[in-house]
């Protein structure tokens, strides 16, 4: 998973609604579709995107498929942003040292 996958996946308002709904509790496609104005196939498409971004996971439950939030997906995102600035500032400090320490 990459940061941009997760951000892109969540940038869509409908997908974000679905994600938030799963954040509360795991649900099936039917349950998700009943709470949305979008059709069931559309919900399935959105879930595919969220699954590809490793934000949700699916587990079989009887004859149904139950979707739930992957907690580690958000951890990735959080860690990404933190590490992003750590790497940037580290490179900056290296450049300062390169220019200031005489050869």
């Amino acid at each position: 998973m990459t940061y941009s996958d997760a951000l892109t996946a969540l940038a869509d308002p409908t997908r974000r609604k679905i994600f938030e709904s799963l954040w509360q509790e795991p649900r099936t496609v039917t349950e998700l579709a009943s709470g949305q104005t979008v059709s069931r196939p559309a919900v399935s498409q959105h879930l595919k995107v969220l699954e590809a971004a490793e934000l949700v996971q699916v587990t079989p439950k009887g004859s149904h498929r139950l979707y739930s939030v992957r907690r580690d997906g958000l951890d990735h995102l959080r860690r990404y942003l933190d590490q992003f600035w750590t790497d940037a500032l580290e490179s900056y400090a290296v450049e300062v040292r390169r220019r200031t320490i005489p050869n």
Binding site: W23, R78, D82
Partner: peptide, 10 residues
């Protein structure tokens, strides 16, 4: 959600 999610330690 990112800030208040699980795990991780900024």
């Amino acid at each position: 959600m990112m800030r208040n999610g699980y795990g991780g330690n900024w």
